[in-house]
Every structure is written in C-alpha cells, then in structure tokens.
C-alpha cells in the first residue's frame, strides 16, 4: 500500500487536514474539500498552492496532485479560494456558505489594500462587516471599545485621513446602529453588493507590454479583458468583452486576441514570461465558460439549490 501524503487545506474560515494517495487527482482532493465544507456552487472555486519556484498556482484538477510542482512541505499546503467571480452577486450566489466564503475573501482583499476602496465606502463596508459579525447593535452588549480589536478599515484609508482610532470606531458604530434588524447573512450580501462595484473587484491583473514596450496592465474578469495604463488600475482604457472575441491564444510571451469580426486585425500584447500567458489563458477560459453558462437555462442541480435555498 503506497505511503499516504498529508495535505492541509485552509479555507477562509477553516483548516482541513487530509491524507491522500500518491495517485490522487486534483479533482479528487477538490471534491473532498467541497464535500467537507458543504459547498455545491463549486464552479467559482479552486485550490491554490505555492509552486517550487515560489509562485501562487492553481491546482489542475485533471492531473495527479503528486505530478504538480507543489512546494515540498509536510503537510502539503493548499488554500481553498474563489478563482472566478459572479457578474452579479445577489443574482448568482445561492448558498449561504458560498456567500460567506466570498464575503470573507473580498473583505480580506479590501482590508489588505489589494482592492482599492474609497474612504466613505470603506466605512460603510466596515459597518456591514461589523453587523455580519456582531449582529444588532446593543448598548448593553456592545460596550464602548467593542470595536477596538477589530480590523475595520484598509491601512491606506487610516493613513490618508488623520482621524483617531476612536473617531473611526464612532463612525462605524453609527452605521452599525443603522443596520438594526438586518440578519448577519444579509449583511454579508449587502457587503458584497457594494464591493462588487469597486473598480478593482474581481479583476485579475497582469503586467503586459505593447509592441513599443510600454508597460500596461491587463485585467481579466467575468465580462472579458481590459487594458489599463500602468499608473491607473481603476480606469480601463480599452475593453474586449467576451462577446467580441472569437479566439485567444499565445505563443511563448506573445498573446493574441482574435475578434469576432474577421476583417478586424488581431490584437497582440506581450507577457513577461510564458507562465503568465498560461495563467491568463486559464482565467479567460474559465471566466468565458461561466459567462456562457449564465446565459443558458439553469441546470437541474442549480434549480434544486435555488429551491432548497428558498426553503
């Protein structure tokens, strides 16, 4: 009997341990995780690991885990994360566990300044996060300083606006009282509904160059590809919606977008290395698949989920 391999998978709010076989595939491990977590909307998620060169990499589901260059540790380390984002949160996210995992991941992205968020929106989002954690505000329960140990706002907002910690807490407390009567799950959904409109929400950025060698950003998201100038990740200058794209491919560092209109010329940019183009293509294919799926009738499974969620 081959020696089992110890694996640790961290989700946004749990740590799971498994012993897998050397021939266990990525999908088999992924299925064990979603079964344990009770998640059925699996199409948004993936398992991310650090490869032997130190790069974050998504686990391929159709290959054995042992055949992928996972950094050698005992146990092997994986993060269970959302890899694709819905076009519209309230429309698409069905299960509460899905909404919670997205809420925790998006909140982390905002608080760590990975996703830019303006101050007033950050305060509003912070108050929904407080409602999601504490429930209704109560003078008896929530004594002064109840937010002191909470991570409420992105560091950039704290740095840019010279308010004291107490003043920030006061502002959030005012909003917290406003949310009275809102269920924790609804507060998470409100958080996501606001966050999804932030410019950088749900966008995968890649460093690219044009033929002239100018540094630019490529953004890949649920609706297509965008090009940004290097000093402004918020404002897309050129867009390629999935509906306008006939084909995408790459050849080493060169990436080619072919338009639906065959008379229009191909669009070419350059990534720093082949591995980046592989990741771009992977994200394009996954996002495009979900884009097409949303425009078809619900599968039986999704219909069942929606019915159960309603119950």
């Amino acid at each position: 009997m081959p020696k089992p391999v110890n694996v640790r998978v961290t989700t946004m709010d749990a740590e799971l341990e498994f012993a897998i076989q050397p021939n266990t595939t990525g999908k088999q491990l992924f299925d064990q995780v979603v079964k344990t977590v009770g998640l059925r909307e699996v199409w948004y998620f993936g398992l991310q690991y650090t490869d032997t060169k130190g790069f974050p990499t998504w686990l391929k589901l159709d290959k054995k885990v042992s055949a992928q260059e996972v950094r050698k540790e005992n146990p092997l380390q994986f993060k269970f994360r959302a890899k694709f984002f819905p076009e519209d949160v309230p429309e698409e996210l069905i299960q509460e566990i899905t909404q919670k995992l997205f809420f925790l991941q998006v909140k982390e992205g905002i608080l760590s300044d990975e996703v830019y968020c303006p101050p007033e929106t950050a305060v509003l989002l912070g108050s929904y996060a407080v409602q999601a954690k504490f429930g209704d505000y109560s003078k008896d329960v929530h004594k002064s300083g109840y937010l002191t140990t909470e991570r409420l706002l992105p560091q950039r907002v704290l740095d840019q606006h010279k308010l004291s910690r107490e003043q920030w807490e006061e502002r959030i407390e005012v909003w917290h009282t406003e949310h009275r009567g809102m269920l924790k799950e609804d507060a998470m959904l409100e958080y996501l509904k606001i966050a999804q409109d932030l410019e950088m929400y749900g966008i995968n950025y890649f460093d690219i160059k044009n033929k002239k060698g100018t540094d630019l950003w490529l953004g890949v998201d649920s609706l297509g590809l965008n090009i940004y100038e290097h000093d402004d990740k918020l404002t897309p200058k050129i867009g390629f919606p999935w509906s306008e794209i006939r084909n995408i491919s790459f050849n080493d560092k060169k990436f080619i977008i072919k338009p639906i209109d065959k008379k229009a010329p191909d669009f070419v940019f350059y990534a720093p290395r082949l591995r980046i183009n592989k990741r771009i293509l992977q994200l394009c294919m996954g996002n495009h698949e979900l884009y097409m799926r949303r425009r078809k009738p619900d599968t039986i499974e999704v219909q069942q989920m929606k019915a159960q969620a309603k119950e």
């Binding site: 929106t121 409109d197 002239k212 965008n226 100038e229």
Partner: peptide, 30 residues
Amino acid sequence: EAKEKARAKRANKRAPQMDWSKKHEIFSNF
C-alpha cells in the same frame, strides 16, 4: 448616498465602447 456613490462606480469598470481599429490605435500609441 454612500451606497449610491459606491454603485455609481459600476460604470467605471468597463472601458468605453469603440471599434477594434480604434482599440489598436490607442493600444499601440500607449
């Protein structure tokens, strides 16, 4: 009002509509 401000950003997430030759022109001139 804060919610409206946040929602107003939704439009910023897509680039302006333009035909592909215009996209080419802008991209190569960056």
